[in-house]
């Protein structure tokens, strides 16, 4: 499913104080089945952009098209919102903080039942969902609060996947986990993206994740989209990355250091450790 932002401007109102625009004329078209990483510094508007995708934040100007549904500033239709929210799965930062039910099963069934799925159907999908995120069926009858942090995260993600979204939006899904747990979660997301053709939007600070999992990169700065490129092209332009004060993936950083100190040029842009190993052997450095 395609996600298309057309001239989207938005602001937040917090109490009596209306903040300045947090999104400025965002034009961005993410094709169906793409995997896009959104990067940028804290406060650049990444989370706000995510929220406009399913109408949690309505635009002040412009519109967002999700599949054949359109979100506009004057959107009053609950039907459109319901459709959009059913097709867009949202995994917020620290999603385990949304768990509430007595059992994992009830919690996972919460979403589908809100969208009118029968209890039996929901339970059946819950079983699939929990296996999908790599947990055992026995977990379904446990209390979500008795699980470890990593397991809670998986349950929360299952609670989103269970709705079979066409678009999956994730805000730092690996934050706060140990490296192993983080890798497992992201590998899972990549697998779902590939096997089910889910359009995936991932907000992250970690450039190694961008290099390993995403196909395209969006950079946001002060509420604007300043670039939208394929990952390889993006990490090629080191000067520009430096200007945005964005980091490099470890492999790319080491590549640049080597190229400078050994005064050689590796044949291609290396984004992962395997790229780097192959390139080093190819030029005969190692």
């Amino acid at each position: 499913m395609q996600v298309n932002f057309k001239g989207v401007t938005a602001d937040y109102q917090i109490g009596p104080i209306r903040s300045r625009n947090i999104l400025h004329h965002v034009n961005l078209c993410l094709p169906s089945k793409s995997f896009t990483a959104i990067v940028g510094h804290t406060g650049a508007g990444k989370s706000s952009l995510l929220k406009t995708v399913n109408g949690l934040l309505l635009p002040k100007e412009g519109k967002i098209q999700v599949g054949d549904q359109t979100i506009t500033p004057e959107l009053q239709s609950k039907v459109v919102l319901k459709h959009v929210r059913q097709s867009v799965g949202m995994v917020f930062q620290f999603p385990e903080s949304q768990l509430f039910a007595e059992t994992v099963e009830q919690d996972i069934c919460f979403g589908p039942m809100n969208f009118g799925v029968s209890k039996e159907e929901a339970k059946k999908s819950a079983k699939d969902a929990i296996l999908n995120v790599g947990l055992e069926e026995a977990v379904l009858s446990a209390s979500p609060f008795s699980l470890s942090g990593g397991q809670q995260r998986r349950v929360a993600i299952a609670g989103v996947l269970v709705m079979n979204p066409d678009v999956l939006v994730l805000d730092e899904p690996g934050a706060g986990l140990d490296p192993q747990g983080k890798e497992e979660i992201l590998t899972l997301i990549k697998y779902l993206h590939e096997s089910k053709g889910i359009t995936t939007i991932l907000v992250t600070h970690d450039m190694d994740d961008v290099a390993r999992y995403a196909d395209d990169v969006v950079v946001m700065e002060k509420g604007k989209v300043v670039t939208y490129k394929p990952v390889h092209t993006f990490f090629n332009d080191v000067v520009q990355l430096h200007a945005w004060s964005l980091d490099l993936p470890e492999a790319r950083r080491l590549q640049l250091r080597l190229e400078e100190e050994a005064n050689v040029k590796l044949p291609k842009v290396c984004l992962t450790i395997d790229d780097l190993v192959a390139a080093l052997i190819e030029v005969g450095l190692a």
């Binding site: 949690l56 929210r85 903080s97 709705m163």
Partner: peptide
């Protein structure tokens, strides 16, 4: 803040 976050998360899961 947290209230807002949790409300957003549950709204995304279809509550109104």
């Amino acid at each position: 803040d947290e209230t807002q976050k949790v409300m957003d998360a549950q709204r995304a899961r279809g509550t109104t």
